[in-house]
Design a protein around this nucleic acid. Sequence first.
DNA 1: CGGGGTGTTGACAACGATGTCATTCGGACC
DNA 2: GGTCCGAATGACATCGTTGTCAACACCCCG
Lengths: 350, 350
Amino acid sequence: MTNEDKPRRPTISDVAAAAGVSVKTVSRVINNAPSVRPEVTERVLAAIGELGFRRNHIASSLRSGQATATIGLIIEDLANPFYSALAAAVGRYARERGTHLITASSEESPELERRLFLELCQRRVDGLIIVPAGGDHSYMRPELEMNTQVVFLDRPPAGILADSVLIDNAGGTRAGVEALLGRGHRRIGVISDSTTIYTARERLAGVRAALAGAGVPYDDALVRTDVAHPDQAAAAATAMMRGGDPPTAFFCGNNRITVGVLAALGRLDGDHDARGDTRGDTDVDLLGFDDFELADLMPRPLTVIAYDVGELGRTAAARLFDRIGGDRSWPAETVLPTRLVRRGPRRPAS
Amino acid sequence: MTNEDKPRRPTISDVAAAAGVSVKTVSRVINNAPSVRPEVTERVLAAIGELGFRRNHIASSLRSGQATATIGLIIEDLANPFYSALAAAVGRYARERGTHLITASSEESPELERRLFLELCQRRVDGLIIVPAGGDHSYMRPELEMNTQVVFLDRPPAGILADSVLIDNAGGTRAGVEALLGRGHRRIGVISDSTTIYTARERLAGVRAALAGAGVPYDDALVRTDVAHPDQAAAAATAMMRGGDPPTAFFCGNNRITVGVLAALGRLDGDHDARGDTRGDTDVDLLGFDDFELADLMPRPLTVIAYDVGELGRTAAARLFDRIGGDRSWPAETVLPTRLVRRGPRRPAS
DNA sequence: CGGGGTGTTGACAACGATGTCATTCGGACC
DNA sequence: GGTCCGAATGACATCGTTGTCAACACCCCG
C-alpha cells in the first residue's frame, strides 16, 4: 500500500520540504519569478507534481491584498432567458480575463439584493454587476468608497452615483407603438409588469408618448400593470378581449408577458374554431418588448422590440473591468439602441 | 470635512481599537460567541457600524480551514435554457443554505472543463457539480482524495467513482419511439447531437431498442448525428424530407434540435402553401427529447420526452450538500424518470 | 477562609501564501 | 588581489481572522 489517505492538501511548505528549498523559492517558481536556477525550478516542479500541490487561491489573494479574480453578478432570476443570456455574456467576458463569476438571483426583492450585495462584498469580489431590484442603493455607498466597483445593468442606480448600462426602453417602445398606430390601430391593450420596476415605467412612458404624439387618448381600461407571470398576462389579455370594445392590438411589456398573451390569443382562437367561427382574432396585432429565440415559430405574427442582450452584458462587463483596471472617470450612463423586428410565421408570398 | 477618503477597509483590529477591546473580543461578537458582556457587545457593534466594518470572508475561511461556503457548477453553456434552469435550481438550493455559486461554462470542451475544475479547486470550493464534457475524469482523482466533493449531473463520470444524477435517457426515448411506432410510423427520421456525448448515445440506444422491439429495421439513411445547432437540425430535416421515401415522423435528440426541425417543417409547409398545395407535411409526427416552455405555442403538435429539470438540479445539489456534510457512503447513481407529454396547439374538440 | 468552578477577556500562534530585506557566492573590473 | 555588483536563495514579517490557552475576577460551597 503506497497510497496515502491523508485528507490534508499539501501546502507550499510541504513542497519546499520535498524539494529541499525554502518556501519562498517555491513561491517564486509558482509565480514564474525570475532568478531561480533551472535545476532548482525543475526540482520544485517535480515535487509539486508528486505531491499534487495546487496553490491556495484563498491564501494567495489574502496576502496580496486585492484581486480575488472574482466578480459578482446579481440578477433577478437566472431561470429567465433574458437573465441567463446576460449571465452567459458576462461569464464569457470574465472567463476571457481569467476571472470567475458568482451569480446570484435576487428574485426582485430589494432586501435579498442588499443581502447578496453585502455578502459578495465580504467575499471581496473585485467588482459587481447588478440588475437592481431596489429603489434605493445608498446602502452601497460605504462599499463603493472602499474601492468596490459596481456597474448597474438594465436599470439605473438610485441614491448613489455609479455606471449604468441600459437599453432605450422609452424610445424603443415609442417606435413600436407608433408602428402600431401607423397600421391604423387606435385601441391598444397594454400589459405591463409592476411599475415599481424601472424598465416597466420607462416602457409605459414610451407608450404614452406615442399615443400623445398621435392624439390618441390613453384609456386606463386598456392598461394592466403588475403582471408578473405569463398566466396573469394571459388572464389580463383574455379579460380585455372579452370586454366591450376590445383592443385591436396589444403591447406586451416583456418577453414573459408576450408569451402569456400569445397563449391566451391562441386559446381564444381555438375556442372560436371549436364553435365553428372563423379565426376571428387572428388580426389582433402584437407588439412585445424583448426578442426571444422561438419568436419565429409562434403561431401568429408579432413585432418585437429587440436589442442585443449579449452586447448588453458585454458592455457592462467591459465597463466593470475598466473600473477594476483603475479607471476613475466620472460615472457614465450607456444606453443601447433597440430595433423593431417582425417575427412569426412567414406569410406565403401572395 | 469629516468624511475620510481612505480606501482601506477597516479590519477587525480597527474595530477593536475603536471599541477599546481586543481583536479576539471583536471576533467573538462577530461570531455571536457567548460570554461577552452585553455592554461590551454593544460598544463593539457601535464601532462596527461607525467604521462600516465587514468581516473579510477570505481571511475567515482561510483561518478556519475549510468551508468557503461556495460551490462550483460547471455546465456546457449557460445560454442554453436547459442549463440555465439547472443553474437556477442549484443556485436556489445553495442560497437556502447560505452558500454561493460560481458558475462556469465548459462549452463542451474537455480541456476547458479540466481547467475550470482545477481553478475552482484552487479556490477551495466546498464542492462541485459538473455536467462533464470530457470522457476521462481521472485527472480529478487527486482532488477527490483531498476531500473535494464532486457530483456529476446529467452525464456520468468516466475513470473515477463519483455520485451522479441522470435521467432515464434510453428508457424515455424508447417509450417515445414506441409511441410513434404505435401510431403506425415505420419510417422515423432520427436527428441527434454528437455521439461523443453520453446522453446522445443513450438516446440513440433507446431508439434502436424500440425499433428492434417492433421489428423495424434501423435505416442509416434516416439517422443524422453530430448536429450541434438548430440550423444544422433544420438542414438535416429538410434534406430527409426532400429525399426519396421521406420519414413520416422525426425523433429529435434534444430541445435545440427540436426547434430546428420545427422551423424546417414550418418552412416546408410555407413553401407548399405558397405553391397552393395543401399543408402536405402537417401530418409529420414529431418527438423531441426535452420539454421547453413554449412548446405549447408551437405551430404543430409534438410529443416531448419531459422530466423535471428543477428536480434534476435540486437532486444533484442535495447529494452534494450531503457529501459536504460528511456523508462518505459509496457513490451512487440516481436516475430520474421521464414522461411523455403531448404539446402543441390544442386540437379543437371535434 | 481556601478550593474550585464559571464567566469574561486578551496575548499569541496559526491558516497558506507573498513582500521585504538580508545573505551568500561568483565573477567582472580596476 | 581586493572591491563591487548582480544573481540566487532564505529568514521573517505580514495579510485578516480564529483557535488555544492563560489570566483574572467573582461567586458558591464546605
